[in-house]
Amino acid sequence: MKKVLVILAVVMMTTLQAQEIKQVAQISVNGVGEVKVVPDQATISATVETKGVNAKEVKKINDTQVEAVLKMIKKMNLAPTDYKTQRVALNPQYDYEKKKTSYNATQTLEIIVRDLSKYDELMDGLVSQGINKINNVEFQSSSLSKYESEARKLAMKDAKMKAEDYVSVLGQKVGRALTISDNSQNYRPQPVVYARMMKTEMSDMATPRETVAAGEIKITANVSVSFLLE
């Protein structure tokens, strides 16, 4: 009997504690922080694509074009760590109507341009030496971690300010944070104004041109915070 009474007492205490926890005055809000930055570098993904009926010949031509592209990149004094082969492929293409097989060879390079003033010169060189497909141009900041930290701090300040606005009419104060959740999406920021694709015609290569508007990138942080009310 005593054992039963002890169990009941423990259950009642646990229930009371749970009720007390539920009755704690608190407020939950979301906070957003945003930092706008002018990008200072770009990552280019570009491909040399070659087609033909002989697999060996197609691969040979593709390799020759890629070699010329790499030589051009080296002449621009890019750091060896700033460019690499991303993907190499040789695929058969079967034409069911003609009942013939052709081959498609591709090599994709990833190049980091840390000085955007070299962007146009590099693009012209890539196309003139054999690149025939620009897959993507992504503008970035070399100080991304720094700006992400700033965005997180701004998000927390925004959350606290919202909480203070809500409770200001109640005669209460915002106390310590009970829970903090980071809801920021894990993605790379994109430029507000994206790159305009360069012309493939090389007739005006001698004339300096600007073919990209880098704009700015937005780095955002989103948090959910629960504050204790005093």
Results as ranks from 00 to 15, higher is better:
Ala163Asp: 00
Asp182Tyr: 01
Tyr194Thr: 15
Gln185Lys: 15
Ser184Thr: 15
Tyr187Glu: 09
Asp158Gln: 02
Gly171Trp: 00
Leu154Asn: 03
Thr179Arg: 08
Lys199Pro: 02
Pro189Leu: 01
Tyr194His: 11
Met197Leu: 09
Leu154Trp: 00
Pro191Lys: 06
Lys160Val: 12
Met197Ile: 08
Gln172Cys: 07
Val174Tyr: 00
Gln190Val: 13
Asp158Leu: 00
Leu170Gly: 05
Tyr166Thr: 12
Gln172Tyr: 13
Ser181Asn: 09
Tyr194Asn: 14
Val169Lys: 03
Ser184Leu: 01
Gly171Pro: 00
Lys160His: 06
Gly171Thr: 04
Asn183Asp: 05
Lys162Glu: 10
Val193Lys: 12
Leu170His: 06
Tyr166Gln: 09
Pro191Val: 09
Arg176Thr: 14
Lys153Asn: 13
Lys153Trp: 02
Arg176His: 08
Leu170Ala: 13
Met156Gly: 09
Ala177Gln: 13
Met156Tyr: 04
Gln172Val: 15
Leu170Asn: 12
Lys153Ile: 14
Gln185Pro: 02
Ser168Met: 02
Arg188Trp: 03
Met161Arg: 12
Tyr194Gln: 14
Tyr187Leu: 15
Lys160Thr: 09
Met156Glu: 12
Arg188Phe: 11
Ser168Thr: 07
Leu170Pro: 01
Arg196Gly: 14
Arg196Thr: 15
Pro191Asp: 09
Val193Gln: 13
Tyr166Met: 13
Glu164His: 02
Tyr194Pro: 03
Met197Gln: 04
Met156Cys: 08
Asp165Glu: 10
Arg176Tyr: 14
Thr200Glu: 12
Tyr194Lys: 12
Glu164Val: 06
Thr179His: 11
Met198Tyr: 03
Gln185Ile: 07
Arg152Cys: 08
Val192Met: 04
Val169Glu: 00
Arg188Glu: 07
Leu170Gln: 11
Ser181Gln: 08
Ser168Tyr: 03
Val193Gly: 10
Ala155Leu: 01
Ala159Phe: 07
Asp165Ile: 12
Met197Ala: 07
Val167Pro: 05
